[in-house]
Structure formats: C-alpha cells, structure tokens
C-alpha cells in the first residue's frame, strides 16, 4: 500500500528549513514510533512534509510542533505524519522480491511440514483493492512447480468494505498492471472496456475475501493454521497497543513455523518479540517459532 516516496531534489524554497539536530531528533522519534527509517538522501522531501505538518497544525516552530507531538502524545498527528511521509499505492507485482521469496523458498519449507491432504493457507491483509492476493495467486500458479500437488487457500482481508467490493470485482487499469509480464496479463485477465482489465472468473472465485479488523481477536479468530501472511504497510498506521494486538492476533492465526512478510521499510523488531527474523536469499521475513522454545 505505501512506501517511502522517492522524489527528486526540488529547487524551490530555503535549502534547509530544519537543522541537522532537529532532523536527527525527528528521525529517531519517527523510527521509534513507526519502525520506518527515513532516508537521509530524501532530506528535502522529508523537510517539506514536516514543514507542511507544522503549518497545518498551527505551530509556530519545529520545537513547538515536536514538543506537542512527543509530550502530549498528540492523537491523530502521528497518522497524519505517516500519511505525509509515505505514498499510498498498490499495483500488481509490487515489491516483487517477497513473492519470489514465497515461490523459491518459503512455500517449499511450508510444504515440507504438511501431511498429505493438509492445505497450505496464505493470508493477504490488508488486501486493499485486490492487487496483492491476485499477485500471490498468479505467482504460485506460474512459478511454484509443486502448486498442483497441494490445496492452496488464499484469504484476502481488509477492514474497508468498499475496497473489498472492488477487490472481488477485480477490474484494473493499465497503471495497476504495468509491472505484470504481458503474457500473464493475457492468461489471467480479460479486457472488459477500453483500458480496463478484469481478472478471470476462475481466479477471482478462488480467493476468499472478507472484512477483518486485525486488532480484534474475535474477528481474526476465524483465521487459523495460516502458513504465510502478507501484512505490508499496515502496522505503521497503528498505535503501540493496537500494533501489539495485531501481532498477537497474527501469532494466534499462524501455524508454528509460519512466515510473515512486512512492507520493505517496516520491521517487526519494534513491535513484538513473538517472531524471529529469517533471512532467505530473496528477502528478510519473520517466522513464528515452533513451540517449547526456551525463554
């Protein structure tokens, strides 16, 4: 859904509205709160966004703004900041290295733990308008050689019922599909109007869409024995307690040894101790340990 926006260096405005120290303090705080590392090379971009928030909140200085943000816990402001600092977008093949990690490494390991007939379960949350779960499905069908030997179930959830409706419908424009190899577009989509493509019915009907609030244990209780979760760029929007609740709920939903993929600028290390980092050739992911792990 989101990533740190990359923007060219602009020419307008004062060269450095914030001092090095101010920026360092801000970055440290922002990282502590969100787990997002701000890239120093994008200083101009960051500063412009911070200055914009200072102006919008009516603060007269960075100091006043930062103090309010830190000491009063200013509810809502952190979320506004995250929105300023990130770009919301979703498209097919987004952050593709994680899907490659799925088909080249994770699924084989998951399959090794399965008894005959036991399904492999994958959960995309938040699935937004559906690009991610369909990308997962196509990747598995195309690139995982053992796909036919297993029953693979893909769940796709979002808290927003409007985006879920669009996800079920599965119709996209050129922009969403631009990264998808052309032969795959031909195989899994049909042209429904000028420059609008719809996912073929067979694929649309194989994904279980549903509305879920990840912080609510009653809602997530419907999801169990999940082997792989894609939870990208969601937790950064949560406050500390909801983020921990979300992590707890994912832990409950997962099979031992199951994996989680977070967004590329996110890290589980700021959220919970429940999972262990696991490095594959393609990506760093998080793993639910097997039980009876020592303290």
């Amino acid at each position: 859904m989101s990533a740190l926006a990359s923007e060219g260096q602009g020419a307008e405005g004062p060269p450095h509205p914030l001092s090095d120290e101010e920026l360092a303090k801000f970055s440290e705080f922002f990282y502590r709160k969100t787990g997002i590392r701000l890239d120093e090379r994008k200083r101009y971009y960051m500063e412009r966004r911070i200055v914009e928030r200072i102006r919008r909140t009516g603060c007269r200085s960075f100091f006043e703004y930062f103090t309010t943000l830190k000491l009063n816990g200013a509810a809502g402001e952190l979320e506004a900041l995250i929105n300023e600092m990130t770009v919301n977008e979703t498209y097919f093949w987004r952050e593709n290295y994680q899907f490659e990690c799925m088909t080249r490494s994770m699924l084989d390991e998951i399959a090794r733990r399965k008894r005959p007939g036991e399904p492999i379960r994958i959960w995309s949350i938040p699935c937004s308008t559906g690009e991610e779960p369909y990308t997962i499905a196509i990747h598995i069908l195309e690139y995982w050689a053992r796909a036919d030997s297993y029953d693979i179930e893909i769940f796709a959830s979002d808290i927003d019922s409007n985006v879920l409706k669009r996800a079920r419908d599965g119709t996209y424009d050129e922009r969403s599909l631009s990264r998808l190899p052309p032969q795959l577009r031909a195989r899994y989509f049909k042209l429904v109007s000028e420059r609008r493509w719809q996912v073929i019915n067979e694929l649309r009907s194989s994904i279980a869409f549903g509305s879920v609030n990840l912080s609510d244990p009653l809602e997530t209780a419907r999801y169990r024995q999940i082997d792989l979760i894609f939870c990208r760029n969601l937790l950064i929007y949560f406050d500390d307690v909801s983020r921990r609740l979300a992590a707890e709920n994912m832990f409950e939903a997962m099979s031992p040894g199951g994996f989680i993929c977070l967004g590329h600028s996110e890290s589980m290390s700021r959220i919970t101790n429940l999972f262990r980092p696991r490095q594959f050739a393609e990506a760093l992911v998080y793993q639910k340990p097997a039980p009876s792990r020592g303290a």
Binding site: A137, I140, D148, S149, E153, F155, S206, A208
Partner: peptide, 8 residues
C-alpha cells in the same frame, strides 16, 4: 489449479 477456495 492448486488454488482452492477457502471457507472462512
């Protein structure tokens, strides 16, 4: 296909 519709 290896994909099967899951029941929630």
């Amino acid at each position: 296909m290896g994909l099967v519709k899951a029941k929630i």
